[in-house]
Simulated assay, not measured.
Amino acid sequence: MRVPEAEPLVRAWRDRLDPSASAGVPAHVTVLFPFLDASRIDEGVCAAIGEVLGRYESFEARFDHCGRFPGVLYLAPETGAGFRCLTEAIVERWPECPPFGGQFDDVVPHLTVAQGQDEAVVEMAEADLLTGLPVVTQVSAVDLLVHDGTRWRRRAAFPLAYPGFSG
């Protein structure tokens, strides 16, 4: 899910420290990676994604601190519950696509800022990011990005239901 409200804070850091930024990936929280190969994504798959995600209400996400994985600096949402629900729903529909290939027991929602950088650079980035937090966004859609061999491009966007919508 794109987090455009984070771009002013993270863009310069991501451009320097996160290779996915130069490959066309905006500031985002991943719902599921890897997903189906681009050649398998057709109108039927897109309709199924829309049906699954359309059952969930949009929600507010507040990124209020930084976190780290080995070699990764990220912005962390105050609670990852909304993101986790969306991931679980997509995995339930496509169980052949476990998050991160099944490498991790727990999927932690996060917005990556830096990958594979020296500790001193990561500490400098983190100190700067902390001065701009919190970042608050309304999560109202999920984008499907596909890789064309060089860049990631948005293939489709799937809206979430508005709170209180009963249609």
Rank of each mutant, 00 (worst) to 15 (best):
L86E: 04
Q115D: 13
S166D: 15
Q103Y: 09
I41C: 06
V25I: 15
D143A: 11
E126A: 03
H110D: 01
T79I: 12
P99C: 05
R155N: 10
A89H: 07
R55I: 12
L32H: 04
H28M: 08
V25M: 09
S22T: 13
V121P: 04
D37M: 11
V108M: 05
A157G: 15
S58T: 08
A125P: 01
A156K: 09
L144H: 10
A48G: 11
L133R: 01
L75G: 00
V108P: 01
F83H: 02
L129A: 01
D148M: 10
W152H: 07
M124A: 11
W94N: 05
P159H: 15
W152T: 07
S22R: 11
A61S: 08
A27T: 03
R154T: 14
A81S: 09
G54N: 11
G116C: 15
G167A: 14
E7Q: 06
D148T: 07
R151V: 12
R68W: 07
Y74D: 03
I49L: 12
H147A: 09
G164M: 09
V135T: 06
T137Y: 00
L9E: 00
L32G: 02
D18R: 02
V108Q: 02
L9H: 00
V72H: 04
S166G: 15
A27M: 06
D15N: 14
C66W: 00
